[in-house]
C-alpha cells in the first residue's frame, strides 16, 4: 500500500482544506479585493493574512501556520520587478526556496506551500490559483503536522 493510499483513506468525509494565505498589501491583497468586486467565485478555503510586503514573510509564519493546523500555505506577492518596495518579493522568493527544502525534510508534500506573483489587476488569476490549490490539497488530505506537534507536546 502506497503512502498515497493511506492518505486517501485518511481523508474524512466532507473535509475541506484550510489554507493560510499571506498576501502583500499592494498586489495580491488588492487582487483579492478585485476578485470580490468582480464577483469571481473560488472555494472558501483560504484565510488571508495581510502583510505590507511579501518580504515581511517570516519563515516562521509558515511553519507556525502548519503547526497550528493549516493544510497548506499560499504566499502572494507582486511580480518580479513590480514590488512596491523595490525588491521585497525577491527576498521572499529566497526564503521560500529554503523553506521548501525544510518542509520537504519534515515530510510535507511540496504542493502544500505555494508562492505566486499576483498583481493588483489579476483578480482572475487569484481565483484560479486558489481553485487549483484547493483541488490539489483536497487530493492530498489534511496536513498532519498539527497532530505530530500535539503528539510531542503531550
Amino acid at each position: 500500500m502506497s503512502d498515497n493510499q493511506i492518505n486517501k483513506q485518511a481523508i474524512p468525509a466532507n473535509w475541506k482544506p484550510r489554507i493560510a494565505a499571506f498576501f502583500c498589501n499592494w498586489c495580491t491583497y488588492t487582487a483579492s479585493d478585485l476578485a470580490g468586486v468582480s464577483r469571481l467565485k473560488y472555494p472558501a478555503t483560504i484565510r488571508v493574512i495581510r502583510i505590507m510586503c511579501s518580504g515581511r514573510l517570516d519563515p516562521q509564519f509558515v511553519t507556525d501556520a502548519f503547526a497550528e493546523g493549516a493544510d497548506a500555505v499560499l504566499i502572494g506577492g507582486c511580480h518580479p520587478g513590480d514590488c512596491h518596495y523595490a525588491n521585497g518579493n525577491y527576498k521572499c522568493l529566497r526564503r521560500v526556496h529554503l523553506l521548501k527544502k525544510v518542509l520537504k525534510q519534515m515530510g510535507l508534500e511540496e504542493e502544500r506551500l505555494r508562492l505566486e506573483w499576483i498583481s493588483a489587476s489579476e483578480g482572475k488569476r487569484l481565483a484560479e490559483v486558489v481553485s487549483e490549490m484547493s483541488e490539489a490539497i483536497l487530493k492530498l488530505g489534511p496536513c498532519k503536522v498539527k497532530q505530530v506537534v500535539e503528539h510531542y507536546e503531550k
Binding site: 470580490g36 464577483r39 467565485k41 472558501a44
Partner: peptide
C-alpha cells in the same frame, strides 16, 4: 475583517463562507 470582498462576494457555499467568516 474583510468578509465582503474576501468572503460574501466570492463564495457561494454558505456553510463554507460562514466557517471562513468565523475563522477570520
Amino acid at each position: 475583517v474583510n468578509i465582503r470582498e474576501n468572503v460574501s462576494w466570492v463564495h457561494t457555499d454558505t456553510d463554507d463562507a460562514n466557517l471562513k467568516a468565523r475563522d477570520l
